[in-house]
Amino acid sequence: MLSDLNFTAEEQDAVVVFPESVAIPAEDIACSLVGRVLSSGPLDGGRVARLFRPIWKDNKVQTITEINSNFFLIAFASSSNRNNVLKRGPWDFQKHWFPLEHADPACTIHDYAFRYTCILVWIHNIPLSLMTEALSRTLGACIGKVVMTDSRLEDGNMGEFLRVRVSLDTTKPLRRCVMLSRSNAKAILCPLQYERIPIFCH
């Protein structure tokens, strides 16, 4: 039935818009993020705003506006404030993932897919001789797009696991391990542990 649907000539007439006369100023969008709490049902938007305002610092957050059910526009005082919030993610509300993206003045709320999240991953069972940032990047690339590595170097000691921050595609199952292959040696199974992982199965 939908394939037979046609718009009338009147409905197809385009409305000419001069952005500078009706649009929100570009500088107001430049320091903003959009986010959606991925919950199976609607949440109290005011409660979400009241929780995150003090966490993100009242003097750095200008407004947190619920535009649609569970969908928010967050305006910051500066782009550095906005970027700091992105770096400190992932965020969640009552364990439900609260993904954030840069606000794009050309996008509607339906254009945001919220497909990727940055998360810290611990890579266990690494031989001591291979506890390096180089291997952390190599293995991290098997999990997702590497954002940064954490050397945690203290007197040359990397600790008992490698730690890497990656951008994960949340439409794919979480990877549980990576296999570390070495020449003339048995491959090693390296279990993965995700830090502060929220619920994003919705």
Rank of each mutant, 00 (worst) to 15 (best):
V178Q: 00
C118N: 15
R47N: 14
Y112K: 03
V15L: 13
V146W: 13
F72A: 03
P25L: 10
N83K: 10
S181G: 03
R137H: 14
A75I: 08
C190P: 06
S39Q: 02
I55A: 02
F7K: 10
P198T: 12
F71M: 02
R115G: 00
S21K: 13
S69K: 07
H110C: 08
R82M: 10
D104C: 14
I143Q: 01
N184T: 02
V61K: 00
A134K: 14
T108E: 15
V147A: 10
I197M: 13
S79H: 10
A185H: 12
M179E: 06
P90H: 14
Q193H: 12
K145C: 13
A9K: 15
K60G: 01
M179K: 05
N81E: 08
G45M: 03
A103G: 00
E11A: 11
D4T: 15
A113T: 15
C201A: 11
Y116P: 00
F114W: 06
H96N: 05
K172P: 06
G144C: 10
R196C: 09
P19Y: 06
D58W: 01
M131C: 14
D58L: 04
G144D: 06
R36W: 02
R82I: 10
G144T: 09
L135V: 12
A106R: 12
A141M: 11
L189R: 11
L139S: 06
V16Q: 12
Y112R: 03
F52P: 00
W56K: 00
N6W: 14
R176Q: 14
S167Q: 12
S136Q: 07
P173G: 09
N70F: 02
I109Q: 11
